[in-house]
Design a protein around this nucleic acid. Sequence first.
DNA 1: AAATAAGTGTTGCATTTGCAACAATTTTGA
DNA 2: TCAAAATTGTTGCAAATGCAACACTTATTT
Lengths: 210, 210
Amino acid sequence: MNEISIFRGIDEQDVKYMLKCFQAKTITYKKDTTIISNLANTNIIGIIIDGDANLIRNDYNGNKIVLEKLEKGSIFGEVFSSYSDELSVIATSECVVTTFDYEHIIKRCKKSCPYHNEVINNMLQLLAKKVVVMNNRIDVLTKKTIREKLLEYFSIQEKENISKTFYLKLNFTELADYLGVDRSALMREIKNLKNEGFIETKLNRIKLLY
Amino acid sequence: MNEISIFRGIDEQDVKYMLKCFQAKTITYKKDTTIISNLANTNIIGIIIDGDANLIRNDYNGNKIVLEKLEKGSIFGEVFSSYSDELSVIATSECVVTTFDYEHIIKRCKKSCPYHNEVINNMLQLLAKKVVVMNNRIDVLTKKTIREKLLEYFSIQEKENISKTFYLKLNFTELADYLGVDRSALMREIKNLKNEGFIETKLNRIKLLY
DNA sequence: AAATAAGTGTTGCATTTGCAACAATTTTGA
DNA sequence: TCAAAATTGTTGCAAATGCAACACTTATTT
């Protein structure tokens, strides 16, 4: 997959050295525990070393919304400084997390680690990738009907998988949230698409017939 | 406004030097002319030095969608590499634009300009700001009804202006596109909000009464 | 293994929305 | 300054959607 990670291109020894230089802390969290709360008011960068977590927003009504699913290699905390609602990161499996202060990324360390450039480049690419992912979601959400939203979503999956057959990464409840529509209405529209011969489905496998 | 720009914190002389080092080109475009076409296939970074432009997507139907409004200080081209549709940038007023190759940002130049760090930091912050803006839009688009979308949009404007009275930056046609809804349905809902005493409007000025 | 929770699938109905079409108003530019 | 273009504002109507409620299936927990 050639995934970008914040330490890509830096060898393991140097990563260790750098983390020491950054005064990074690595902690293991149990499932369903809080990794960090009130993220918006910190200058912390976190990296998921292993496991999965969710970036959660608690809005004014007390609703918890999953803003982002974090997995191995994901970073969090880099961009939400302007959020006024409370953000937190919750482990959804046993989870190893490294955190350090954002300052270390932008300000050169005194020892001016030679691999610092590499980290910044990776960071830019991670952010750029995030922008692409968000753009995809906006494209989908901007469509007016559930059918159009679904077809746009399928089209993105088709591109990513380079195949007209793929497995949904979200369950239907999550997909409804992702598309910003009512779940039952989503089910109805999927049924319609099947009946009209646009798609075939089997569990979470989708096959596009057009 | 303390706006971030890619050259913030670097004095004018050094910016000039750096642009030379980057082999940057600065060109003035007339209104409605194409600044760059097929952006997705380039590694170019552009900076709007003066004037306004639109980042346009030509989708498969030939529809032109305004993805982003660019103004003085905006940068473009850095993150859209994965778009398969054609992207272009069109001047919406007389427009001075500087372009250079993305490589210059990430790879240290041979002379290793001392202000290079500053540029990278600014670049990170610009991207981060973009992520925040996109997050706002996703928050709005995810709401199910036009009323909820409008109220969320107003709430963001209220925060940004720190006032319950503010002027819309978009006209109603553009706002309808931004919210992903039909324009006439949007007008209807604004009328309802007025009749029910939630807002007052006068031209593009909105006053929240709650 | 039983109990509980989470997710899927379905339906009737009221409400919301998009669409189409048009008039009125404002802005642009020739 | 006048004509054309763009934007605003309105409405009837059909279609799409959300909501609520429920049965059923699959996971998870104890």
